[in-house]
Computed example of a mutant assay.
Amino acid sequence: MLEAAEGAFGENGFHTTSIGDITRRASVALGTFYVYFDSKDEIFRALVAHMGEMTRSWIADRVKTATDRLDAEYLGLLAYIEFARAHPNLYRIIEESQFVAPDAYRLHYDSFAARYERNLSDATARGEISDGDQSTRAWALIGMSVFLGLRYGIWDQERSAEEVARAAADLIAHGLNQ
């Protein structure tokens, strides 16, 4: 049912989508919806959480072969752009949640940030990256991913995901210095 909700909300938005739209896409009776969810708001919030978990799982699966934190940053950016291309409804749903379900929106990003901070701290402890404010770093890296995913995953897919991820990974590894 969440897959059907992703299609309906992603194409039509929260306010235009009805529970009937979701159940028709899912090929289930209207009553079946209420076995799992009490309202359109509840399935939307569940969808936001589900999409966050899908994204984190997709990325985690693709960075597990990383040789170090900087390699993980490249692989993570590559994975995120590929995920955005494979799930074009992601942005509409997550961005709309900012207004429809602000707590779900905040939790979506807080969950990413908490995991990111932990991974950065672990990398610092292993000597792979310098010590620093892991919270600020995590949020900055999330921002980079979100906007690169939007630009090169949704708006314009002309450049390869690898090329974009390499350019961003170079910025992460070397900053703006030469």
Rank of each mutant, 00 (worst) to 15 (best):
Phe33Asp: 05
Ser135Ile: 08
Arg62Pro: 12
Thr17Ser: 13
Ala60Ser: 11
Ala46Cys: 06
Thr32Asn: 10
His174Ile: 03
Asp21Tyr: 06
Asp110Arg: 11
Val28Ile: 15
Glu42Arg: 11
Ile19Tyr: 02
His174Cys: 11
Thr23Asn: 03
Arg85Asp: 15
Val63Glu: 06
Ile19Ser: 03
Asp122Ala: 04
Leu141Lys: 04
Gly127His: 07
Gln134Met: 09
Leu107Phe: 00
Trp58Val: 12
His174Pro: 10
Asp103Phe: 01
Trp58Asp: 15
Tyr34Val: 02
Glu82Leu: 06
Arg25Ile: 03
Ala72Glu: 13
Ser145Trp: 00
Ala104Ser: 10
Gly76Lys: 07
Ala49Arg: 07
Leu90Met: 12
Glu162Met: 02
Ile94His: 03
Arg115Asp: 08
Leu78Arg: 13
Asn12Ala: 12
Arg137Asp: 04
Thr65Asn: 12
Ala46Phe: 00
Ile43Val: 13
Ser145Gln: 09
Arg115Met: 10
Gly149Gln: 12
Asp68Phe: 03
Thr23Ile: 08
Leu107His: 08
Asp38Gly: 11
Asp103Tyr: 00
Val35Cys: 04
Leu30Gln: 07
Ile19Gln: 01
Ser130Gln: 01
Ser111Tyr: 01
Leu171Asn: 05
Phe99Val: 03
Leu148Thr: 10
Tyr36Asp: 12
Asn177Trp: 08
Leu150Ser: 04
Ser135His: 15
Phe37Arg: 04
Val28Ser: 08
Leu70Val: 04
Phe33Glu: 11
Asn119His: 05
Trp155Asp: 14
Tyr74Leu: 14
Ala165Ser: 08
Ser130Pro: 01
Ile129Tyr: 00
Pro88Glu: 15
Met51Lys: 06
Leu75Pro: 12
Phe83Gln: 14
Ser57Gln: 14
Ser121Phe: 02
Ala169Tyr: 01
Leu2Asn: 15
Trp155Asn: 13
Arg45Ile: 10
Gln157Asp: 08
Met54Ile: 06
Leu150Arg: 14
Gly175Cys: 00
Gly143Trp: 04
Ile93Asn: 10
Gly127Cys: 09
Ser27Gln: 11
Ala46Thr: 06
Ala72Gln: 08
Ala169Gln: 01
Arg85Glu: 13
His50Trp: 09
His15Tyr: 10
Ser27Asn: 12
Gly153Asn: 07
Phe147Leu: 13
Ala138Gly: 06
Leu47His: 08
His50Ile: 01
Asp71Tyr: 03
Ala123Asp: 07
Phe33Leu: 10
Val100Ser: 05
Ser160His: 05
Ser97Trp: 10
Ala5Gln: 13
Lys40Met: 11
Leu77Met: 06
Tyr91Glu: 11
Arg69Ala: 05
Arg126Tyr: 01
Gly7Thr: 13
Phe112Ile: 09
Ser121Leu: 05
Ile154Tyr: 05
Asn12Ser: 15
Gln134Thr: 12
Ala8Glu: 14
Glu3Asp: 15
Glu158Phe: 09
Glu53Cys: 04
Tyr91Thr: 03
Val28Gln: 12
Ala138Cys: 07
Glu162Gly: 03
Arg24Ile: 03
Arg62Ser: 11
Ser57Gly: 13
Gly143Pro: 03
Tyr80Glu: 12
Asp38Ser: 13
Val28Cys: 14
Ile129Trp: 00
Gln157His: 02
Glu158Met: 10
Arg106Gly: 09
Thr65Phe: 10
Thr136Ile: 09
Ile93Thr: 05
Val28Leu: 09
Ala138Thr: 06
Glu6His: 12
